[in-house]
Design a protein around this nucleic acid. Structure first.
Length: 417
RNA sequence: GGAGAGGUGGCCGAGUCUGGUUGAAGGCGCUUCCCUGCUAAGGAAGUAACGGGGUAACCCUCCGUUCGAGGGUUCGAAUCCCUCCCUCUCCGCCA
């Protein structure tokens, strides 16, 4: 949720929203509604004040005066109800538009859309395609079973089998232990949340079509543990000395992938269900940009240790999604496609999500909203895709990345007979 | 799933039957001050959040809202009615 007051008073805030591609007319419409709302609010409050006074007076009145006083108070009430109805309508209208307005983009974000990113850093070589692409290799190793999955669950589902499962758990262990060393508390969060949680975390209404809904129970399957992690401090007044509070969430993630028909259909690059270790940080507003760099460094450290070639890009304003003010993507080189493909990302939401959740920090004179940030530590399924291309050997065997060896007790895996 | 109990300020806890200066007793905690060689004990005062307006601005001031959430009754609701959410106890079921 954006800050309406800032939208009214701060021109940079306004231009940050326009930077994201929102029509100026929409903003003016919001401001007009806001002005009308506040006028009505003043009117309502004045009448309520009159009513309160009149009621208190009745309490003290003698039995003889009572009836007359009640009659005059009833008149105030009738008037109040009329104005209240108008106010309610106006503020509902305002909320509906305001909630769909994205968080302003930071001025450092490049202008434009998906293709207008800025490359920040490039690490490693753009190597040649391996003998098999990840989809073929997954089949070759007996690690990915998609046919049966298609029969049982439909397209974009897969069974992960054999050593791939051990590597998955090694990745989880490796990432979680790294995160714990950096002050993150590990969490296994619920993956089903209420609608309100989706709204508060900043995913609804914008990404509604991307999530699975359990209509019967009014619950939604989360596409990332970020949603549930955000809720860990809903309504809390945090102590500044405990900040930042960092969580490392492990969970399965569910995405409908609506609108991606025909994209990335082979292998497990893009599936409806995958596991992920996610970083989440509740942060003092003064340090949130520093914390974003911290998250990015961790992501890069993991890629460096897995010895994957990648680049870091600064995502353009129009491609940020509603809640992020700034976002880095780490894109790993996918040799079979001769392209960089997104593996991890991290973003600073500033107070956008905290405002809806009312997560604040106890201060001397006021209690400012916290800032929230999140980043991918390890998207396991997709990491497997990159490992399968970068670590397959000429003889068809798989060399386990050295940082993972202690976590799975394997070094070289031969293909099945 | 069946039966019951309950959700009040940072925390504990009155008030709900019998609606009216109750934003809410009391206690704990916390802050400031006094006392004290230091600490403890003791004494005094203060101590909710959010929103809107006033003000050059505010630690200033006015108003409103909030006793799990949302509706209703009433001139007036923490108190009465309805719906929902959550917690606890007992029974049943279960990884």
């Amino acid at each position: 949720m954006i800050d309406l007051r800032k939208l009214r008073e701060d021109t940079d805030y306004r231009s940050g929203i326009i930077h994201k591609g929102v029509d100026e007319k929409t903003l003016d419409e919001v401001l007009d509604l806001d002005t009308a709302c506040r006028a009505l609010q003043a009117e309502v409050e004045q009448l309520r004040s009159d009513q309160n006074r009149a009621s208190k007076d009745i309490g003290k009145a003698s039995p003889e005066e009572r009836e007359e006083k009640i009659n005059s108070a009833a008149k105030i009430k009738a008037e109040l109800q009329k104005v209240e109805a108008k106010f309610g309508e106006a503020s509902d209208g305002l909320r509906e538009i305001a909630i769909s307005i994205p968080n302003p983009a930071d001025p450092r974000c490049p202008t434009g859309g998906e293709d207008d990113y800025e490359v920040i850093e490039v690490v490693g070589e753009q190597n040649k395609p391996p003998p098999m692409d990840h989809a073929e290799y997954g089949e070759h190793m007996g690690w990915v079973e998609k046919e049966k999955a298609a029969e049982n669950m439909g397209s974009r589902f897969a069974y992960l089998t054999g050593e791939a499962v051990l590597i998955e758990f090694a990745l989880v262990q490796y990432t979680l232990s790294k995160l714990m060393n950096h002050g993150f508390t590990p969490v296994v969060p619920p993956v089903l949340v209420r609608e309100q949680m989706m709204l508060d975390a900043g995913f609804f209404p914008t990404d509604r079509q991307q999530v699975y809904e359990l209509a019967e129970d009014d619950l939604y399957l989360t596409g990332t543990s970020e949603v549930a992690l955000a809720g860990l401090h809903r309504g809390d007044l945090l102590d500044a000395k405990n900040l930042p509070i960092r969580y490392g969430g492990f969970s399965s993630c569910f995405r409908r992938e609506a609108g991606t028909y025909g994209k990335d259909t082979s292998g497990i690059f893009r599936v409806h269900q995958f596991d992920k270790v996610e970083m989440f940080s509740f942060c003092d507003p003064l340090n949130s940009w520093e914390e974003l760099e911290n998250l990015r460094n961790l992501e890069q450290e993991i890629l460096n240790e897995l010895e994957l070639p990648y680049r870091v890009i600064l995502v353009a304003a129009g491609d940020l999604g509603a809640p992020a003010a700034m976002k880095y993507d780490c894109e790993v080189w996918l040799p079979s496609e001769q392209k960089y493909r997104e593996l991890t990302s991290c973003s600073n939401y500033l107070d956008y999500s905290a405002r809806r959740m009312m997560t604040r920090i106890r201060g001397e004179e006021s209690n400012p909203l916290a800032h929230t940030l999140n980043g991918t530590a390890c998207a396991i399924g997709r990491t497997l895709v990159f490992l399968m291309e970068h670590y397959q050997q000429d003889d068809g065997s798989f060399k386990v990345p050295s940082v993972l060896q202690p976590f799975c007790g394997l070094d070289v895996i031969a293909p099945p007979e």
